[in-house]
Design a protein around this nucleic acid. Structure first.
Lengths: 144, 144
DNA sequence: TAATTAAAAGACTTTTTTGTCTTTTAATAA
DNA sequence: TTATTAAAAGACAAAAAAGTCTTTTAATTA
């Protein structure tokens, strides 16, 4: 469904929202441990998201990654688009270049509702909401 | 959603169903042209599906790939499982190894219905049905 | 201002996926 | 039974995705 890069990105965003809710910042090492990802890999991903304005960061001592209140309202759709592009929102399920309502591939109609549901879900789900569920221990980012 | 390999596999299966409905067989070159895929690549994919019993083939003159009536009832689920495994049916949306109803990842609940819909669709959609729609020109495998 | 801290940048490697080419095997038909 | 045809098999190559390492830049604190 998502690329590995995108999975890490979403996990990191939720973790950062959680760790920075008191206004502090999280270092890359802590993030990598917290979401169980390769340190340098998630660093690169977050740098990219930083350039795109999806996550905030600060260098030097007491520096790190963080999300402000508006950042916590970031939707999954924003993250997925930034990392994987919008294939999942609009690409053809069978990989055809020419596929539309007027010139549908054999799976086009079968996919319409699924695609709609995925899009709705990604558009309405906010990082902050997922972080709250995590805080309440209703969901988990790691084994323990 | 699917790997390129799986997209080609589905497209080829529909094309083979269409071209072999009169009891004849289709050669690999014709298939490659018919679904717009690299010839040797789709050959390899079909050989694999042949070994797994998902498609039938015969060597020599008048040989080629074909589907009998029972083959035409093959579901997309069968093809997808044979090619991509069952990640799409049961894997965690965030790539966590430990993710279940009892120990859900942050996206687990958001994904439950989507996953269910995808599974239902793949289980109920048969190659023969897709081929019939193609015959009626209601859907298309290629540009023209 | 100098030392320290932590992200940014970018080169590099590995693995996986996708795609190509050549040789072998098996079926048919002359 | 020999020539021909078409899939099977397997070795390679290219491209993309995933992951690693080193150097640079920009903050902070002493």
């Amino acid at each position: 469904m998502f690329s590995k890069t995108c999975e890490y990105a979403i996990r990191a965003m939720i973790f950062i929202a959680q760790q920075s809710k008191d206004g502090s910042r999280v270092g890359i090492k802590e993030i990598a441990k917290g979401i169980d990802s390769p340190e340098h890999f998630i660093a690169k991903i977050l740098q990219d998201l930083g350039r795109k304005g999806v996550v905030q960061s600060l260098k030097g001592p007491t520096g790190g990654f963080y999300l402000d209140n508006s950042g916590r309202k970031t939707t999954l759709a924003t993250i997925v688009k930034a990392v994987d592009g919008d294939d999942i929102f609009s690409g053809c399920g069978l990989g055809l270049k020419q596929c539309s309502d007027k010139h549908p591939c054999p799976l086009h109609h079968e996919f319409i509702n699924i695609r709609k549901d995925i899009t709705n879900m990604l558009n309405k789900t906010k990082v902050g909401d997922l972080q709250e569920q995590l805080d309440k221990k209703l969901t988990f980012l790691r084994r323990d």
